[in-house]
């Protein structure tokens, strides 16, 4: 009995790990498990973020010319802070980029997290419109307009020196992530590839057991499963510095006493 439970536990762990790796299909598998219930989990504020991503605001014609240091000081003096940010969760999925190409799903961007980590709005909000009146948008303040207020379509003949929105994102995000040694720097780190709807692909009996679910995942995701065998999810062992009060006690793990049953 105990052995059975143990095996079930391990199987569940395998399923969970694979689900974590194949995030986009998570919702679909959950749905199937819930016997074709159409409720799909979404992040809080997802719909609003999606709507915001579709907004097109008039392009800022002229920007105030000032150096980065002056800009940073002036922005500091306005006492704008993270508390003034209305929204924290954004989806980067602009029609400006979609008009040219459509290779990736939206990128999830946590504005609050970035604002808190950097502490200096001028790192991303590097310039502002030349005058307040020229900007009509939903931002609280013309000092911190959104990226697409200035960066819109690429190769704009009237603003040749201005980067398009896609390049503005990449040129701003990637080097900073590299310098800070934080955040994703590869393509798939931010972009999820377009994943087909798994509802039709997953074929399971009425009440599947855990191993059947795992086997069904592995039917297509064999490479991912093999990769997982080399990760901490499979090989973990020994004490964990993150387990309060028990940091030195955890001696068991898949790499030590537990059995890898797969």
């Amino acid at each position: 009995m105990i052995q059975q439970l143990f095996r079930l536990k391990i199987a569940l762990l395998v399923v969970l790990s694979i689900m974590l790796m194949v995030q986009p299909s998570l919702a679909a598998i959950e749905t199937v498990a819930a016997q074709n219930d159409d409720v799909v989990w979404t992040a809080p504020g997802q719909e609003k973020a999606r709507q915001r991503a579709q907004q097109i605001i008039p392009m800022v014609d002229k920007v105030k010319e000032e150096g980065p240091i002056r800009r940073s000081q002036r922005l500091h003096a306005t006492e704008l802070s993270i508390k003034d940010a209305k929204n924290t969760y954004f989806l980067l999925d602009s029609p400006f980029i979609k008009a040219q190409e459509d290779h990736y799903g939206p990128v999830r961007f946590n504005h609050g997290q970035h604002a808190a980590a950097s502490g200096d709005c001028s790192i991303c909000h590097h310039l502002r419109p030349a005058d307040n009146s020229s900007y009509i948008g939903d931002s609280n303040h013309p000092e911190t307009v959104r990226c697409s207020a200035c960066h819109q379509q690429a190769f704009h003949p009237d603003y040749p020196e201005r980067l398009g929105l896609k390049a503005a994102y990449h040129q701003s995000c990637t080097p900073c992530h590299q310098q800070q040694n934080k955040g994703p720097v590869t393509c798939s780190g931010c972009h999820l590839n377009k994943v087909p709807e798994h509802k039709q692909l997953v074929k399971l009996p009425e009440k599947p057991d855990a191993l059947q679910v795992t086997a069904e995942c592995l039917r297509c995701h064999e490479d991912e499963a093999n990769d997982m065998l080399h990760t901490a999810h499979w090989q973990w062992r020994g004490p964990s510095g993150h387990t309060q009060d028990h940091s030195r006690e955890i001696r068991h793990g898949k790499g030590t006493t537990a059995l890898n049953n797969y």
């Binding site: 190769f155 003949p157 040749p160 896609k166 390049a167 990449h170 040129q171």
Partner: peptide
């Protein structure tokens, strides 16, 4: 081009 290393015009 993700970084606009190529500018067209």
């Amino acid at each position: 081009c993700p970084t606009e290393a190529i500018t067209f015009g």
